[in-house]
Simulated scan of single mutants.
Amino acid sequence: MGFYETIMEKEKYPTQFYISSKGNVDGLFLEYHANILFIKTILKEGIWQSDVYFDSAGKTTDSLHIKNKDIETYNNTLKKWEPKSLLVYANYRFDEKGKIYEETYGRHKDDLKKYFYYEDGALKADETCFYYRKEYDSLGVLTQQIDYNWETKEIQTLGYENGKLAIKKVEFDENQIWNPDGTITKSKKTHKPNHISKSYIIETEYYPNGKIYRYKKNGESKEYREDGTEAIYTPMIKADPEMDNETEPTADEDLENKVYQSGAIEIKPSYPNGIDALYKFFHDNFITPEVEGLQGTVYLSFIVEKDGSLSDIKILRDIGYSTGQESVRVLRKSEKWVPGEQKGKKVRCLYTLPIKLPLQSK
């Protein structure tokens, strides 16, 4: 019984601890690295209670201990999530200023509940594993939400821009196993060569007014105008005013005038030196509105002509404050593009460009 100090064989640094009357390590258990306190462990009659880690300056970097906390858990009998008081480990991580930036709770080395914080202490993300995750901007506005639907076995991701739903993605993976304990794991089964997959991904993008802009399922896509009508791009054939009767265009005429979807041709149109060069041009020339917390994505569509010039520039979606008009202005100032090609010939091609604000220098 009493206070002891020993030298750990591997690290060769002193370790201090206390032995209780029952022969158990009790109270503080101190470990040093290079004569600097590295970890402080609290035990009660040999049973671990908590750990506190320190950096070289003596500041707390991590704190790990046991506590009771109400956490949403999956009730397999009722087929729903409900709060339950659990004895869990609580782990707090601190930044250089001593503020908590991550807070997690778990059991058996698995995290169950997580919180993440900005430097000012505002909530950045809130997650219950395999149930939901919510992310917020620095002003507390919801930017993304992930929900796990345990009835349909689908994972739904909702993306918001300026408080409005901008994109929804629904995923179903036939290889995922949704376990009775509320965890999701991967199946180890192998499929036969002729197996037809039941997995799918459905993505829906929205205009600011809530109407659908684009719908994609497993790679197949449809686009819609703001009035809800489907945007179908048909060949554009030049009419000959001197001809009295309409005639069917030849194959060469069709290739000469048709507007192609960028994903349907052999060589897609591109910006000189790559798309990163275009985004850098936007970063250097775009005048950002002085609106605190402004973020989101502006979508433009345009035709890349056979000579690389741009025509029919349209704002498919913006985030207000004239961001669409400013995007068009900057795009018109940019260099000519490298046109797309089909069957060895340059062709006109429809292109959609997303511009994410605030702009980042590439």
Rank of each mutant, 00 (worst) to 15 (best):
Y224S: 09
Y224R: 06
Y224F: 15
Y224I: 03
R225G: 05
E226F: 01
E226Y: 02
D227N: 14
D227W: 04
D227S: 06
T229D: 10
T229A: 07
E230P: 02
A231Q: 11
A231Y: 08
A231L: 15
A231F: 08
I232H: 07
I232V: 15
I232C: 06
Y233P: 02
Y233V: 13
Y233E: 01
Y233A: 07
Y233D: 05
Y233I: 13
T234G: 07
P235K: 01
M236Q: 07
I237K: 00
I237T: 02
K238S: 14
D240F: 09
D240P: 00
D240L: 08
P241T: 07
E242V: 15
E242C: 07
E242G: 05
E242K: 15
M243P: 02
M243A: 12
M243G: 02
D244A: 10
D244S: 04
D244R: 01
D244I: 13
E246F: 10
E246C: 02
E246R: 04
T247G: 06
T247S: 13
T247Q: 12
T247R: 15
T247C: 01
E248L: 12
E248D: 14
E248C: 11
P249F: 05
T250Q: 08
A251Q: 13
A251W: 04
D252E: 14
D252H: 03
D252M: 13
D252Q: 12
E253P: 02
E253D: 14
D254Y: 08
D254I: 15
D254L: 15
D254C: 12
D254P: 00
L255C: 04
L255Y: 05
E256L: 14
E256F: 08
E256D: 15
E256M: 15
N257W: 14
N257Q: 08
K258I: 13
V259Y: 02
Q261P: 02
Q261L: 14
S262D: 10
G263Q: 12
G263H: 07
A264L: 11
I265C: 07
E266V: 14
E266P: 04
E266W: 05
E266L: 08
E266G: 09
I267C: 04
I267E: 12
I267S: 08
K268E: 12
K268M: 15
K268H: 11
K268C: 09
S270Q: 06
Y271A: 01
Y271E: 00
Y271L: 03
Y271K: 00
P272M: 03
P272K: 07
P272W: 02
P272R: 14
N273M: 07
N273S: 13
G274I: 10
G274M: 05
G274C: 12
G274Q: 06
I275S: 04
I275H: 06
I275E: 07
I275W: 06
D276T: 13
D276E: 14
A277W: 01
A277D: 03
A277G: 05
L278P: 00
L278A: 00
Y279I: 08
Y279N: 04
Y279E: 01
K280D: 10
K280E: 10
K280T: 11
F281V: 08
F282Q: 01
